[in-house]
Nucleic acid binder design. Structure first.
Lengths: 201, 201
DNA sequence: TTTTGACCGTTGGAATAAAAAAGTCAGAAA
DNA sequence: TTTCTGACTTTTTTATTCCAACGGTCAAAA
């Protein structure tokens, strides 16, 4: 069983490599199989369908994200620095996995299953809870005034995601946002984050 | 000449009615002409092409918007109330002209000419200048701390537009956002606006 | 100056065919 | 028994064709 999990991990990593370069829709199960020097049915032995594989990929990416941002969960860091560092992590992930279009709410996929959507909502919820906790701790430290941390966390994340969304929409219709756009996007997110926190004091 | 302008106005108003209901792409020049009980070449006598007509329509809508929001430009109103009322006006326009997809940066149009884009940028700039002025006056009144009002106006408007953008993207893939989505969108924009202003104090 | 019927070149959407992808299965290999 | 595969079927995507409908023009009438 542990061998099986290892294989699943290997497949997911292989899939990620392809997805990062060509996106989910432009990557076929055959290509993933060939990369790993196995047959397509082998893939289907470990994943019942492409959807499940995509789900596995997304799970791994989010797990990596949460691993990083939750690392100093209990460290005593001013909330402004805390959120800035999270924004930068998110920015790295955004660039790295841009081709998967994870920021659009649903990934680059006609495999636009309900399963995937609910999964996304779970991730969003987890991120909101995580941020709510940050706000809660900050309130207890007296950095910011007491509020409904759930609501505020949602609003904060929406305001940040909104900037990303704008960047994607207004972007040149190229495949990839330019370095310059990415830079101004990050700057805006950091500025907005700082003003937001200040507004909660 | 003043007669010509009147006719142009009439055509624009007729076009707006169709655009509001069916969007720009799904409205034909013939339909607009028939609505006004004239022939298609008559339209082309007043507007060289559909692009120009669309441009006229957009100009009118934005003129209406600026007429309303700039009305109490010199009134002594607290900035929070000021921006709230602007947000609500914008919200009304967003709903009313939703089918034209003016919020997406470029309108619902394969007529996606450069002319149109630059025009949009001009409108955006004007709105930014207008908001910068509001921030500037607010600084002079001592409501908020001095800052780079241009930068702040841009960031403020991006944060608001970002929420709209999210609402459009995440929305059910229906033609029109639901009443509920619209309501939460407005609430988020108002909350964010208030926090933003507080963050500038 | 303004308006029109008749006309032309282009385009976008429906329909179809062709290609490629997802997914299955009986059976072999380990 | 668990893992894997070649050969297969079914579904989806892409390419192609075609035609109505659209944007746009023009000579001539009002």
């Amino acid at each position: 069983m542990v061998e099986t999990d290892k294989k699943r991990e290997l497949i997911i990593e292989g899939a990620i490599k392809r997805f990062m370069h060509y996106g989910i829709n432009k990557t076929t199960m055959n290509e993933i199989a060939e990369d790993l020097s196995v047959s397509k049915p082998s893939l289907y032995y470990y994943f019942p369908d492409k959807n499940s594989l995509v789900l596995g990929v997304i799970d791994k990416i989010f797990a990596d994200y949460f691993d990083i941002v939750e690392k100093d969960r209990f460290a005593d860091i001013p909330i402004i620095e805390r959120l800035s560092s999270i924004t930068e992590v998110k920015h790295r992930f955004f660039q790295k996995y841009y081709m998967l279009h994870l920021s659009g709410g649903s990934p680059d996929s006609s495999l636009n299953s309900e399963e995937l959507k609910t999964h996304f909502l779970r991730m969003k919820k987890r991120n909101e809870d995580f941020h709510a906790e940050i706000f809660q701790k900050s309130i207890e430290k007296g950095e910011i005034a007491p509020t409904d941390v759930s609501k505020i966390a949602e609003l904060y994340l929406d305001s940040q995601a909104g900037i990303t969304s704008l960047c994607i929409m207004h972007g040149n219709k190229e495949l990839f946002p330019s370095k310059k756009e990415l830079k101004t996007m990050l700057e805006k997110q950091l500025s907005l984050s700082n003003i937001f926190i200040k507004g909660l004091q």
